[in-house]
Amino acid sequence: MAFLGKLYSHDRDENYEPYIESLGLPADRVANLKNYKPQQKLEKNGDTYTMTAVSAAGDRTISFKVGEEFDENLAEGHNAKTTFTLDGNTLTQTQKFADGNILYTKREYFDDKLIVTLTRTNWDGTAVRYYKA
């Protein structure tokens, strides 16, 4: 797991704006997310992983254990039942919301890049965010 502790910087997006617009969020939150281009890092301490996103808007840190569902408190009071799975260099995050929507975030870590693929229920597209190490 050579990718642990490595900082990845946002490079470019594909189909990200339509994905954000499909979420049904207030206009100001949509605008903030469209401009959100964080650096990302994944670290491990024992059986707990910590994922950190660093941006001008502030840092966001989330700690989790693979395979264990937990309550994730998102912006503006949105909550999800979140589970992470890890298969080799691929970390998949599943966020289940009370309204039935499910968001899937697949992070594929490589020595020189991170590829983040975003899909969700009730939207037939796929968004991809690319990061460089």
Rank of each mutant, 00 (worst) to 15 (best):
K37F: 03
T92Q: 08
G46E: 06
Y49E: 10
M51E: 14
M51S: 11
G88H: 04
N79I: 04
I62H: 15
V54I: 15
E72Y: 09
N89S: 14
E69T: 14
A80K: 04
F97E: 01
A80L: 02
E69M: 07
T92I: 08
G58W: 01
K65D: 03
D87G: 03
A56K: 11
D59Q: 09
D99K: 06
K81V: 00
T82D: 03
G67V: 07
Q40I: 13
A56M: 08
N35I: 00
K96S: 09
N35M: 04
T52Y: 10
T94M: 11
L33I: 06
T48K: 15
V66G: 07
L91R: 03
P38G: 01
A53C: 12
A31P: 00
A56G: 13
T48Q: 15
K34H: 04
L86S: 04
D99R: 08
T50D: 06
N101C: 05
L91S: 01
D59V: 06
T85S: 13
N101P: 00
M51K: 12
F97W: 06
I102T: 15
L42M: 14
E43N: 05
K96N: 10
F84S: 03
Y36W: 15
L86Q: 00
D59I: 05
D71I: 11
T61F: 12
N79S: 11
K41I: 12
G58T: 04
K44F: 05
T90V: 13
K81P: 03
V54H: 03
L33E: 07
K96E: 11
T52S: 13
Q95L: 07
M51T: 02
Q95R: 10
N32V: 02
T48P: 06
N89L: 03
T82Q: 02
G88I: 00
E43P: 00
E68K: 14
T83F: 05
T94V: 12
E72D: 13
D59T: 14
Q95T: 00
K44W: 04
Y36E: 02
N32K: 15
T48E: 15
A53H: 15
L91H: 06
T61A: 13
T52D: 08
F84Q: 05
